[in-house]
Design a protein around this nucleic acid. Structure first.
Lengths: 184, 184
DNA sequence: AAAATCATGTAAGCAGTTACATGATTAC
DNA sequence: GTAATCATGTAACTGCTTACATGATTTT
């Protein structure tokens, strides 16, 4: 049900089409919530039936028609109600850790390759996060309040990625040793 | 589908009943994979139909009958095949971050309470992890190889929890300031 | 007396993924 | 000519959660 509120938060910032919301989920919000266009279109329809959002048909030439959605006062209330619900503690579901746990039954070389690949992705993600921090969030306590809140979601991402990288520095030497031992 | 392989890994360690596997998921493996008893019983049945596991009926007096499951050679092969599949990069779905992103629309005090609550859970989890590390994984490079692999899944957990705690040290002062400003 | 432990399951429903479907326009 | 962008949707399926169901034994 959290997808519903992610969409409402997005529409509370500004009215948008399903297509535009989908793109937003690939960027900023995408760090802590993901959704496909199928899911988003379906949820928008449900929310429209419930009166949480409403839309205008916009005809375009040289481009397909679109539906511009905006949040209703009912939608704002539903969002506010949700914001004060307690959250469930996050659980981790990580199949890489499961494969590591299985240990010698698998291939150390394969695990090493996977860790290196994901490490590379995380290195790039960290660079992206740092670039965003530099560009958008300098002198954070002088920025508008909504920016300050968003800044801390970014900081969460930075800490998360850094912890993964720190761990990979521990596990890589171990896996290298195991992969080496297997081929000897 | 990863649940299937989590169960197979568990059964590869030792034969067990659905009930025992459920308990295992509340401990060690539970850090990186969770499953309810309903899901586990259902999956065991499917796997039994597929020949990946087999079971013996065991009658007990003063306790309900049980089914002791063990992995078959087919199951071991399926597990090995799965272990060398590439993993998808983990995505984060965290509704607390979403609520933080929504910022001034919500209540800073509520967010603060939630962060403090989850921080407390993480502090306790870190203590548990450190205790396990002390008790089971001292002189790690002299331990049996399967233990060494499992050790690195524990290390992942420690890094993860620590990064969350480090982040909470950043966000708590900010939320305290906002909560204070709102009541003044 | 109440709650926890042992032990297994069914059924309904929701959330999310994957596949399928269309079609014009614009950029490479 | 091929691929990407704009823009929306349906349908089938899988994975998971929540609720319901039973019942003896043991611990508090």
């Amino acid at each position: 049900m959290a997808l519903r509120y992610a969409i409402l938060i997005s529409l509370h910032e500004e009215a948008a089409t399903g297509y535009e919301i989908t793109k937003k989920f690939d960027q900023g919000m995408g760090f802590f919530w993901q959704a496909s266009h199928q899911q988003i279109y379906l949820e928008l329809k449900k929310m429209s039936d419930l009166g949480l959002v409403e839309f205008q048909h916009i005809e375009q030439d040289s481009k397909p028609d679109k539906k511009l959605y905006q949040i209703t006062s009912q939608g704002i209330q539903a969002l506010k109600d949700w914001l004060i619900q307690p959250v469930k503690t996050q659980t981790i579901k990580d199949s890489l850790l499961m494969k590591l746990y299985a240990g010698p039954l698998g291939s150390a070389q394969h695990l090493l390759d996977e860790v290196l690949r994901i490490k590379q992705e995380h290195v790039e993600l960290l660079e992206t996060f740092h670039a965003i921090e530099q560009e958008w969030f300098q002198n954070i306590d002088q920025q508008p309040l909504p920016y300050q809140y968003i800044y801390y979601t970014l900081r969460n991402g930075i800490h998360y990625v850094q912890s993964w990288l720190a761990w990979s520095e521990e596990v890589i030497p171990f896996l290298e040793k195991q992969a080496g031992a297997a081929t000897r």
